[in-house]
């Protein structure tokens, strides 16, 4: 098993999180936005697992399992919303929904 400094694992998690953040901010296609959110959630869970490996406690892995559950529920609802969005606007561009019906 690897004996790396905990900082290195946290650096990788932070880098993955920032890449996901760039994806959310830059892309306008809703599928890409949802994928970037998955990347960010995965990076946050990775930070928990790395910390759990550092202190030899199972709590980090348990938090990852909760994050995984949340990500599964979130992606199911998000994809259903995307299907409805495509049904309405015939596109996946988030800018198509910039006008409110007020």
């Amino acid at each position: 098993m690897a004996q790396v400094p905990m900082e290195h694992g946290l650096y990788v998690a932070g880098l993955l999180f920032c890449l996901g953040l760039v994806g959310v901010l830059v892309r306008r296609d809703l599928l890409f936005v949802l994928m970037s959110i998955e990347i960010m959630l995965n990076a946050a869970g990775m930070a928990f697992v790395v910390a759990g490996a550092g202190w030899q406690q199972p709590d980090g892995q348990i938090m990852f399992i909760f994050i995984l559950t949340m990500a599964a529920a979130e992606v199911a609802v998000g994809l259903a919303l995307i299907v409805q969005f495509h049904h309405h606007f015939k596109t996946l561009d988030a800018d198509a929904a910039r006008r409110m019906r007020g």
Binding site: G14, F17, G52, G54
Partner: peptide, 21 residues
């Protein structure tokens, strides 16, 4: 990312010991 790295630099973090949980 720079802020995250800056926060982590001065910390006294234990290395991952490699024994599995």
């Amino acid at each position: 990312l720079g802020e995250l790295v800056y926060v982590l630099i001065g910390q006294e973090l234990p290395p991952t010991s490699g024994s599995e949980v």
